[in-house]
Amino acid sequence: MGNFFKSAILCALLFLPINGWTGETLRLATTTSTYETGLLDQLLPPFERAHNCTVHVISVGTGKAMQIARNGDVDIILVHARRAEAAFVAEGYGVNRRDVMVNDFVLLGPADDPAGIVGLRDAKLALRRIMAARQTFVSRGDDSGTHKKERSLWQRAELTPAGAWYLEAGQGMSATLRMADEKNGYVMVDRATYLFHRDKIRLKPVVEGDADLFNPYGIIPVSPYKYAHVKYELAMALVAWMTSPECQRMIADYGWKGSLLFHPSAAGGDR
């Protein structure tokens, strides 16, 4: 039976974490929309090759990404919640925030549109009607960028959504979208995630084009003054790459089944 232990230990040695990474690793916390749409799989490899490093992507909501960064557990974040980003920088956790890209949010709903909001250009009015009709609305409920945006819309419409019709998923964008689809309810989603899932869901866009639904993404390195261990130089190199003409062109060209998902905005952008 001593053999058993010997082989167990041998096994353990064989599997010892040999992390043969060439070069450094950079930790990026980002939102589910940039990762699950496959965009980062396109943008990061050229950067990794150029800097002989590995980027570890942790894909969570914007709120969680910022919290992880506040704890010093990542080197850089790519998020979408302008006001929260400003607070993050003002508190000294982030430095050198740069715009990277934009897209917009879309309100999706059942094809028969029980709340009667199809074609509206006013997101606040649409929310008011959904609430008045007590139609199922699935919220992210996870303090993500999308959730922050949704809450600010309710707030500005002077409504407090609550009740059996208002579901808080507490999950990522894709999971929330699929939940709304299964429940045949309304949901607010960023356009990239919507287009990515379009062929797999029944919900249709009902409200879009409101200036309130604008969705800008920013990249922020964690401040080396706050946390001495962060890889600030490599993080700044990633900022430089993401805002470079070459990468911005890749963002502009990144499509899914013929639809463009994001618009670059580093050089002033379209808007």
Partner: peptide
């Protein structure tokens, strides 16, 4: 682990992610 592709993504976290993505 944080479900980092190629590093800390294992069978179960990948399944959770892929189900979310449909």
């Amino acid at each position: 682990g944080g479900n980092i592709s190629g590093y800390t993504r294992n069978i179960t976290t990948a399944m959770a992610l892929e189900t979310n993505k449909g």
